[in-house]
Design a protein around this nucleic acid. Sequence first.
DNA 1: TATGAATGAGCTTTCATTCAT
DNA 2: GATGAATGAAAGCTCATTCAT
Lengths: 207, 207, 207, 207
Amino acid sequence: MAKGARARRKAERPGEILEAAFEEFAQRGFAATRLEDIAERAGVTRGAVYFYFENKEEVFVAMVRELSRPLHAEIEVFLADRPGPAPEMLRSYLRFVYQIAVDDQRSRELLRLLIAEANWFPEMLDEQFRMVWGPFVDTFQKVLQEGAIQGELRAAPVQEFPEQIVGPALLFNIWILLFGERKPLDPERHFEAAIDLILHGLLPRKN
Amino acid sequence: MAKGARARRKAERPGEILEAAFEEFAQRGFAATRLEDIAERAGVTRGAVYFYFENKEEVFVAMVRELSRPLHAEIEVFLADRPGPAPEMLRSYLRFVYQIAVDDQRSRELLRLLIAEANWFPEMLDEQFRMVWGPFVDTFQKVLQEGAIQGELRAAPVQEFPEQIVGPALLFNIWILLFGERKPLDPERHFEAAIDLILHGLLPRKN
Amino acid sequence: MAKGARARRKAERPGEILEAAFEEFAQRGFAATRLEDIAERAGVTRGAVYFYFENKEEVFVAMVRELSRPLHAEIEVFLADRPGPAPEMLRSYLRFVYQIAVDDQRSRELLRLLIAEANWFPEMLDEQFRMVWGPFVDTFQKVLQEGAIQGELRAAPVQEFPEQIVGPALLFNIWILLFGERKPLDPERHFEAAIDLILHGLLPRKN
Amino acid sequence: MAKGARARRKAERPGEILEAAFEEFAQRGFAATRLEDIAERAGVTRGAVYFYFENKEEVFVAMVRELSRPLHAEIEVFLADRPGPAPEMLRSYLRFVYQIAVDDQRSRELLRLLIAEANWFPEMLDEQFRMVWGPFVDTFQKVLQEGAIQGELRAAPVQEFPEQIVGPALLFNIWILLFGERKPLDPERHFEAAIDLILHGLLPRKN
DNA sequence: TATGAATGAGCTTTCATTCAT
DNA sequence: GATGAATGAAAGCTCATTCAT
């Protein structure tokens, strides 16, 4: 029993460390975070961290990878083929992005870390792009294009930059990162304003 | 000669130090930047930096203030009353924002620093909000509202969140911060796509 | 073997550091002593010192406490009830104090440090008072009072300030601190002069 | 006028600096006192201090010399031949010492500095001995010896260490340096206890 | 005389990393 | 696997001292 518990413990260690690493890195950034804080929060000693990871940078990279995994999964599930009228799909997609922006503090802080440390972890960025932005952008693009073909949407130049659709959500996100509680935004109204603008911008005009 | 030179030198020192500070902070972030690097780049010794600034944090805050001053000025000039049809004003404003996003690497890096260090310098954030975002948002809001009154624009819910208009420009900016040269964007086409979407989204529909 | 050695080493480290700290602090005073000197003398690196103590002040306080412990012990043993005629007790007590003043360079330097840094470590002073001066003064007082009751001693006003009895010993001590080898004193004759004066001052007069 | 004022000013500068130096050194000790603090307190800039004194050590030595000058004068005046019965002279001398110990905070702090820095300024110590202790000890010795010859005092071994007479005053002084307001002493009663002990110790016995 | 900008050595403290146990 | 004592390379900051003005 104890052995099993110990083995289970062991298997969970790396995850616990990365979890702790996220909290600390999110709070202080890469350079200002001490490995000791991570270890302490994870309930292990510094030495133990070095058993699982080469060094601080490795912890950081592994943490980003680990912490963004659930998001990958969610995205994959969400983007799985779900046909429907293009406008409705746009709305549903944008709502999904807003949901992440609003509810998922982790993703928010991850974004902050990516922006802050982008220069020093470019491969990490590319990996994140491949796993998160890429699929999203591709899907958006497909919706925009097929919507245009079907005559549900205007053939707008935004087809070339489908990520612009999530611009308001990004703005919402950054806003919260910058001002937090100090200048709160109503996410629901923010979303409605955004989708209103986008749909009016994309629906074909009668004239 | 020499006298004037020294006096002139002295008057310029703080500015030179802040200039150097910007380069270093932008490259490595607050925590990872060593005061010695700043001093060296400014051509002085560490001690000299401490003659002008209390400590590293003060250097940072002063740097942000100093470096964003030209932008403040530009904004103030730009936003000075320039009447015209609302759609044209929107286009002109958004182009202005894109110009900054595209050409002004300093502002871009400043934004990165603000996002990265937001938790530790909240007053600084508020100051920047007051000087940069604030006037912008207010002006946008006025344009949107008066455009609606004049019948030039739709009375859209985005009136409540006028900053959404610059969402694409922010996205452009962050994109470059994240991927730099690795995934370049054509700023001109990006802007055109954005303004197309926004104007179509705001122009009143005939039907 | 090696294991034991390491464990033994570890247990002794703090003591070794404090020992080294004493030597250095005694030589140069608190402010002028560099932690590096202490570390070097203790045969460890600076970092190791910080493993055991919070900072330089802590080292100082811990050092004083540690270094005065043997004296506490000695005092406690010495002051344990040892009845006898008051004059003999006075003589024996004063000789004890002189012995410390003469032989114990550590106590002497400790006294110097206490005087020098009294303003900055008042709690430390109070602690020392409680452990060293206090018991002494109390004991002297008791001897003076009971000696007077027994008629062995005069009921002199010095009963209120029994520490005056050790005034000559303090003077001897300070003298050495100030002039060291330059103006040597013969401790034996000094003591005899002191006890002669005190006893003549306290013995009851026939007339 | 202004020139005269300026000249007067100039002449007073060194004194003002030493005055300020005393306050600062007394508060923090030699090593922990910054030349800037001294300059600031004296109302000049650091550079000015270097105009009058070679370096920090010179300031210290000069300060001690300057600050102990009034005491020298007082002592000289006081010790000028004033014949009288030996016991009365003893009393008067000891009272004088107590007065200094009690009223003259400067002398007290000077003593602290001497003790603290004795190792590093031995010549200074010797100078102080020559000017302060020396005359005192000599005078005391003369009184004790002549008193014995006259039959007013016992021929006690304390003649060899006349400074023991001021032991209680030194003790009073150190006590205040160590405990200040925390454990106050009544100077008057302290003195009376001391002189009582000493006189009883020195007056010849009838038997 | 006096200023104060500037230097540079040096100090305390921190922390990623190592390694004997 | 895990600990934690220990290292050593910085890093932030201080301050005595200098010197052009």
